[in-house]
Design a protein around this nucleic acid. Structure first.
Lengths: 212, 212
DNA sequence: ACATTCGATTTGTGTAACGGTATTCAAGAT
DNA sequence: ATCTTGAATACCGTTACACAAATCGAATGT
C-alpha cells in the first residue's frame, strides 16, 4: 500500500564494486568444453595454490598437533572436491603418427588426485623446509605426498615424530636400532634410543617440485 | 539491385557446428581479472577442438601427434573429475595444541589438482624417460606437469618440438639463438638452426617424483 | 556446358539489453 | 533511537540482437 515513505535520496543506490567479483565484469561466449575450467576459475578467481595467508600468530588448524622438526615446513591434507574436464593420456610411441579418433582420448586421462593419492583420508601434504634430504631430490619448499596408511618399511622416506617434533628422513634399521637418515652430509643421522619418544607418522610417496 | 536470383533452397543455411569453436557455446560473465586467462584459454584450444590446419610450426589437433624424442615417455592431460575428502593444511607453528572443531578444517584444504593446475584445458602430464635432465632433479618415470598457456621464457624447463620430435630441456637463448640445454653431461645441447622446425610445446611447472 | 551471381535460409559470434537481485539513502512512522 | 519503505544505482546470469559465416540452387553470364 502506498504511503509517504520513499522519495529521492541523494547518493542512494548500490555503490560500484560491491558485487560478487568486486570489479567490472564482461560477458564472454565460452565453448562448452571450456565451461568447467571457466567455472572453476570463477569459483577461485585468484588462485592461491598451497597454504592460505598466514599471519604472524595465526594458528592454522591441522590434523597434526606436533611442532615441526627438521625438514618440515607444513602439513596439509588433500582436497579433491573440485571437478574438472577429462583430458587424455597418450602413451609413448616413437614415430607414432596421428593417434586414433577421439575415443583414444578417453583412455588414460589422469586425475592427479587419483594418481598421487591412494587413501585420501590417510594422505597429507607436507611442505619441506631445510635441506636435510637434498640427496633424495627433496628441496626446500617441495611438497611431499604422505600416506599414513602405508607400512613404514626400512628404506622408505618417512615423516617421523621424535620427542614431539616432526622430521623427514629415510627410515633405516640396523642391529635392531632405528636410524633416521638424512641425505645431506651437513646433517647427522638420528639414532633412536629407547628413552626417546618415536613414531613414524607417515610414508612419503611422492615429491612435488615446482620448477617455476 | 533486385533481380530474379534467390528463392527458397532446401538445405541452405549454415550447417551446425561450423563455427569458430565447432561446438555449442554459452555466454558467461567474467570479472576483469580473469579476462586474460579466459582469453588465453580461448586462444589455446583444448585437444577436442582447434585449428585443423597443420603446418610446419603448428601443433596438430590432438595434444600430441609427434613422436617422442629425448626425455619424453608419454603425454597425458589431466582428469579432475573425481571428488574426494577435504583435509586441512597446517602451516608451521610449534606447540600448536589440538585443533578446533571440524569446521576449521575447511580452511586450507588443498586440492592437488588446484595446486598444480592453473589452466586445466592447457595442462598436460608428461612422463619422463631418459636421464637428460637429471641435473634438474628430473628422473626417468617422473611426471612433469606442463602448462601450455605459459610464456616459455628463457631459463624455463620446456617441452619442445624439434623437427617433429618432442623433447624436454631447459630453454636458453644466446646471441639470438635458441639452445635446448640438457642437464646431464652425457647429453649435448641442441642448438636450433634456422632450417629446423622448432616450437615450444609447453612449460614445465612441476615435477612429480615417486619415492616408493 | 560451365561458371558466377545472389536471394533466401540457417547457424554462430560478440555484444547489448533485460529482469531480478543487491545495496544504499533518508524521510516518515513508531 | 530504530525500523520501514520508496527511490535510486549497480550487479549478475541469461536472453536477445545485429551482423557475420556458410550453404543452396535458380537465374544469369560467358
Amino acid at each position: 500500500m502506498p504511503n509517504n515513505h520513499g522519495g529521492t535520496r541523494h547518493g542512494a543506490g548500490r555503490p560500484p564494486g560491491t558485487g560478487k567479483y568486486k570489479q567490472p565484469t564482461t560477458v564472454v561466449r565460452i565453448p562448452q568444453n571450456l565451461l568447467p575450467t571457466v567455472h572453476a576459475l570463477l569459483k577461485n578467481p585468484s588462485p592461491d595454490y598451497g597454504s592460505p595467508t598466514n599471519n604472524n600468530h595465526e594458528l592454522a588448524i591441522n590434523p597434526l598437533a606436533y611442532p615441526h622438526g627438521e625438514g618440515i615446513a607444513s602439513v596439509s591434507s588433500v582436497d579433491q572436491s573440485s571437478t574438472h574436464a577429462l583430458v587424455p593420456l597418450y602413451e609413448s610411441r616413437v614415430a607414432a603418427g596421428f593417434p586414433s579418433p577421439a575415443s583414444d582420448y578417453e583412455e588414460g586421462k589422469i586425475d592427479l588426485n587419483d594418481m598421487l593419492i591412494r587413501h585420501p583420508a590417510a594422505t597429507f601434504l607436507v611442505r619441506v623446509q631445510g635441506e636435510s634430504m637434498l640427496g633424495a631430490g627433496i628441496h626446500p619448499n617441495d611438497i611431499l605426498v604422505v600416506d599414513r596408511s602405508l607400512t613404514p618399511n626400512p628404506g622408505r622416506i618417512v615423516i617421523a615424530v621424535v620427542d614431539g617434533e616432526l622430521t623427514v628422513k629415510r627410515l633405516l634399521k640396523a642391529h635392531n636400532q632405528i636410524i633416521l637418515m638424512p641425505e645431506n652430509e651437513a646433517f647427522q643421522p638420528i639414532h633412536i634410543s629407547d628413552q626417546q619418544n618415536f613414531m613414524v607418522w607417515g610414508v612419503v610417496t611422492n615429491v612435488i617440485h615446482s620448477v617455476l
